[in-house]
Design a protein around this nucleic acid. Sequence first.
DNA 1: TATGAATGAGTATTCATTCAT
DNA 2: TATGAATGAATACTCATTCAT
Lengths: 224, 224, 224, 224
Amino acid sequence: MGLPGRKTNGEGTGTPRRSRRTAAGELKRGLILEAARAVFESEGLDGASLRAIAAKAGYTPAALYFHFESKEAIYAEVLQASMARLGAAMTRRAARAKSPAERLRAAAMGFFDFYQKNPRDLDLGFYLFRGGMKPRGLGAERDRALNAALAALLEPIALAAEELGAGRAEAERLMVECFAHAAGLLLLAHTGRIRMFGASAPRLMASYLDEKLERLGTGPAGPA
Amino acid sequence: MGLPGRKTNGEGTGTPRRSRRTAAGELKRGLILEAARAVFESEGLDGASLRAIAAKAGYTPAALYFHFESKEAIYAEVLQASMARLGAAMTRRAARAKSPAERLRAAAMGFFDFYQKNPRDLDLGFYLFRGGMKPRGLGAERDRALNAALAALLEPIALAAEELGAGRAEAERLMVECFAHAAGLLLLAHTGRIRMFGASAPRLMASYLDEKLERLGTGPAGPA
Amino acid sequence: MGLPGRKTNGEGTGTPRRSRRTAAGELKRGLILEAARAVFESEGLDGASLRAIAAKAGYTPAALYFHFESKEAIYAEVLQASMARLGAAMTRRAARAKSPAERLRAAAMGFFDFYQKNPRDLDLGFYLFRGGMKPRGLGAERDRALNAALAALLEPIALAAEELGAGRAEAERLMVECFAHAAGLLLLAHTGRIRMFGASAPRLMASYLDEKLERLGTGPAGPA
Amino acid sequence: MGLPGRKTNGEGTGTPRRSRRTAAGELKRGLILEAARAVFESEGLDGASLRAIAAKAGYTPAALYFHFESKEAIYAEVLQASMARLGAAMTRRAARAKSPAERLRAAAMGFFDFYQKNPRDLDLGFYLFRGGMKPRGLGAERDRALNAALAALLEPIALAAEELGAGRAEAERLMVECFAHAAGLLLLAHTGRIRMFGASAPRLMASYLDEKLERLGTGPAGPA
DNA sequence: TATGAATGAGTATTCATTCAT
DNA sequence: TATGAATGAATACTCATTCAT
């Protein structure tokens, strides 16, 4: 009666065997992802079991397997959606910026503030960008996609730096530095290590950008 | 790689109630911690179950409870050992520094390099400093201890900054910023997001410190 | 011996959240309860672990969780079924009684005889009516339900006493006394302490009722 | 190292292989039993693990095996001690009784009150008089001993009844009835089923004895 | 497309007991 | 006489996944 446990797990690469052509199908996928996000939000990463997601979505756990290959696939798509929201937030913010310097600030602070205000998205990002995804074969491809998405998201920072006179290499370096500083501050803030030093994360991020911009104006910092 | 470090291991931390001061006992504790580290290394944090650790150590799961109060206690002690090694590395490095500026650099780069070279310790740190430890009753107390240890480890940075003319507040801010930048860079490097931009994490860290030191020499950055 | 009784089994008791009204499902539930009863019978209450029950039923332990919320839920339902059988037996007996005195006797002796003939049901009752159910959160609610069921079962004794002229308070007292005497005799009989005195439990119960009835006829015993 | 789990369990009957001749040995046995009692008192039956008892006694679990054959053996001896205390309480009470009727009352109420006031002893009695003791071979002999002790304890009731004119058979029957009624009331009281009917257990016991004594005075109830 | 049913592996922890020392 | 160390079996319960229907 129902031989289980034989984790055959697809044909190797990671492309779902489902057709995914019907409009109804897409809609249901969306509802499930919504439910997953809600569960992440309320229960955190550890509480976000397939069962919990299914329950929230009004489905049986088994039903999800028609729409998604695995739990990790759901996680990944939720992260994708999260990054899409992040991108939207950053775009919204950039639209109001008038000068290159303002664009740089808008992009970097947009990134920072999004995660500052949505700590669960941060959780998600940390989790999935790290070793969370077990079936590595599946992960590799998605990893590329996530990297590309991330690069696209951060690109405005580099562009603005170029507009401010930096060379391409320097501009990219600055972009990475901003990303790193933001990530570090967020990590600290998120885990309470910032408050413990009596500091304010957003202010630290802002002043970091101040210094960077000032330096950009002054002149190139030399090759590093 | 084995040496569990100096452990101090007073009477209040998290060891079973009995006396257990025998040399053989301590040795076995060490072997178990070694095994735990190895499991972290090979299986990642999620795979580091009690069973896995016990198996690696050549024990029955139940046997571990003679030596440790709980799984979390093992985790915590492994982390403690990791931080002890970090501290030792930083101290070694600081010993060779002659000027305040060098001391600051030594401390910050010592911190950074340790984790750069021991990515599993980084994993451990990230995991345990975050919400990983569920049973909050135990966790709360240990959290304080870890925070204190961390603060003590980073303090040399602040001290050096003060020697360089910074006020206490500014010095602490700088310390936090260095910590955050290092953490961010490590995170990125660790997850492959740095190479993808063709950058070198240690060089980025070094140049971050250059800028900071230069700014310190120039004069205070104003209140933030 | 199988029939789990009338179970009523509304929507609030202790069954998994889903609809599950399928005939096959109910049947399997019944089989599991049967198995649970059998395990109680052969292993005693302490040996009645989930595993044991599952094994007897031909299931994996995990499978039971599809049909029941928890181990205690199984216990409770087995007890419910037991009480349902008890109720049926008492009702059958009461139907043949013509006078109030006969009704009182029928109720009390029906209660007594049921447990006398089904010692495992007695075990079950003793166990579950005592501190056996650890998770008090669940237990508290169920406890009320069981108390109510028990009270309803014994009520005919009090009613008959009232018909025989007793006031409400006296009638209830008598009911409790009968219950206690029956419980005590059953306990003794069940543990072999009765035979050891060369006495017959049913005869003792019957003569206890004789005395009580005689006393009721004579007049009230005064306040106690 | 250290092949365990092979429950060889003595040579069959239940006589400990220990010598038990030294005075010091007896003293330590006593201390352990004391500890066991204290644990029963504070933790209840389920919390009374060997480990807990050993800890309370200031020993290692393994140490207890020098003094006792098994956990059940400790339980049994604690019960023996409990019954000894019960006997003492009853004797004390009987000493103050002047007439046969008073002696009967003293014995029965002494029994009842002891358990009423020491519910943990009741727990113990219920547990061990029932199927609690797993190694049945061991249990059989002890069972006889316990039965004998119990019979001796209750005998004063029968004796008093004889003094009041009852034949031996009738006297024994009365003794058993009193025992049963007390046991039943205690069970109900102990599990909260008495309060639920708004009755008071001791009062019910007392009035039961009133009726019995009245009936004894009146004349024999005829053979049953 | 979805469900009910079931699985096997896994979770941390407790237990009474044993044995070398 | 007692300990430290270890064991194997047990505990209830969760998980992602599968499959027949």
